[in-house]
Design a protein around this nucleic acid. Sequence first.
DNA 1: AAGGTTTGCGCAAAGGTTTGCGCAAAGAAA
DNA 2: TTTCTTTGCGCAAACCTTTGCGCAAACCTT
Lengths: 341, 341
Amino acid sequence: MQKGKRHVSLKDLAQELGVSISTVSRALNNHPDISPDITQKVKKLAVELNYTPNPLAMGLLKQATRMIGVIVPDLVTHFYSSIISGIEAIAEEKGYYILITSSGESLQKEIKAVENLLKTRVEGLIVCLSQETKTFEHFDKLIQNNIPLVFFDRVCRTNEVSTVVVDNVQAAQKITKHFYDSGSRRIAYITGPKYLNISQERAMGYMAGLKKCKLKFYPELLEKCNLSTKDAMKATARLLDLPEPPDAIFGINDTVVFAAMKEIKRRGLRIPEDVALVGFTDDFHSTVVDPALTSVTHPTFEIGKEAARLFFKSIENQEKETEQIVLKTKLVVRNSSVKRS
Amino acid sequence: MQKGKRHVSLKDLAQELGVSISTVSRALNNHPDISPDITQKVKKLAVELNYTPNPLAMGLLKQATRMIGVIVPDLVTHFYSSIISGIEAIAEEKGYYILITSSGESLQKEIKAVENLLKTRVEGLIVCLSQETKTFEHFDKLIQNNIPLVFFDRVCRTNEVSTVVVDNVQAAQKITKHFYDSGSRRIAYITGPKYLNISQERAMGYMAGLKKCKLKFYPELLEKCNLSTKDAMKATARLLDLPEPPDAIFGINDTVVFAAMKEIKRRGLRIPEDVALVGFTDDFHSTVVDPALTSVTHPTFEIGKEAARLFFKSIENQEKETEQIVLKTKLVVRNSSVKRS
DNA sequence: AAGGTTTGCGCAAAGGTTTGCGCAAAGAAA
DNA sequence: TTTCTTTGCGCAAACCTTTGCGCAAACCTT
């Protein structure tokens, strides 16, 4: 072994033991052709010299890098970072590494991210679409070449690609019914970009919930925004400026709901007495605000874990079989939604 | 090119053009030995066939993987995820990829993370220590082998390793003085594990601030907790149970401050009239709570960027020179700290 | 025309690991 | 003793890219 060399190679072990490189390799891999005596000596020396195989060499030969590319709309939102935690947990169990890239909610950046990650020879991708993503050709290369691909939360091509989502229809329906049961009668929903699966499904759940409670659907109570705090505050303002403003609002994600909360408070309105509020928000952030937010929580860690499991299923199972996993959300009632009767 | 092969190689280009592999390589790298005619043909075909060089082969040959290992105490805290964003931004500019691992605030997991990342042949590490980390031998291999290593926020070995931190002394001193100027007289500080540099430095700043305001230091007003919500609530309870409770509290990080806020509210005390509050918290989370939190914000994105810049400096500059970057924090006064006079 | 220089390529080695195949030695069977 | 089978290794090729060196052809100079 050369002085100053950072890593021990098979060659170093072979030279020290006076055997060939292939013998060392076979011994470390418990090959039956190698005697127990040589095997034991090789393994002992490998431990002493702290040998670790070079993944670059193995990846080059076997065309398998043990790396997964993960693309999320942004890195700083708790929702995504806790999903990544779940992905990482399963990847680590399988001896894989994840390469994380953020699309910054931009289609162009997402396209670039896909390209760059393929360049690194990741074995596949786990992706949540950006809010701008309406076209999906950038995933064609993966689909055509049978490169493992899994979408989570915001998904597309569900007939060709495995996905993990929550039951958005049911969640929005539950919220709407909870509002009704808690005394609200003019229920508004602030949705996101209309081509996102989650926007559509939550709108469907909202309307199903209205129907179930025998409430009429008013189009002006279904507002849209682009998932930024600023735009969400504007959407809330439009709702509160209506001749007959809503007495309950739920929003598509936590950024939107916190923005709505700010606008409601800014106007001196009381939550929930004047306007009840529910959000899709994690437990920590729901309890940090005042009043504590009634929220629908995603099992984010589970989403990440299931996405990773689907990924490994795709690797271990060369068939083009796809699977759609739908996880349940949970409505946790706190202080923001129940009006005093 | 073989059917079903996912990536085009130099060999494929060479065969199609009837030249050698080395000619293709040289043409793509604008080598003067290759004629402009051949160079143009090679480049054109490379674009047509979407050739991308195999980073595994290059990494194997040049012993440079273009990958940086990043270890953070956890992935879901906004502080870390936004620092990672800054690291990623600079890495991307340099054509590098980051491999992120979380230590889960555990020394054992941190040790494992260092090992695992070195196994992948990352070119170096950018690390924030876990709260359990009191011993640093697991970084010796990097230091001895001149493998690039940068610490941020929670740091150690500052004579041997480059670091990026904020001016913790000055920040805590500023908070203490701000409390005094805003009407508070019994100022408490909830610190973290005492061997962390940030715990020590913020305690020093707290005491320097007391001295500056001619306030006496009371040991019972310097509480300690272990950075979990539960423990922080207990620490707050101990402070509020004192015969003479504090009329102002600041905490080591946002988890601690949010927990303190919860405990204060739980007791029906008013913020800031009964107990003023200041935290080390980002802008978004400070404005989401009620009352909006006076906070010291870290320039997290900048921390990430500077850490990455130090990393690349270490790569480009083989000297064992280290550098300590100290960034300024900013005290943003909102509604949680100023008592009515 | 002969000798020297420049140009423009191809061969082969290097990095590290895995694995098919061949070979020699040892052991077993006829 | 001879032949067959098994054991336990080493050689070399494969994966992909880069780069030193050599060689042949073309061009320039004497």
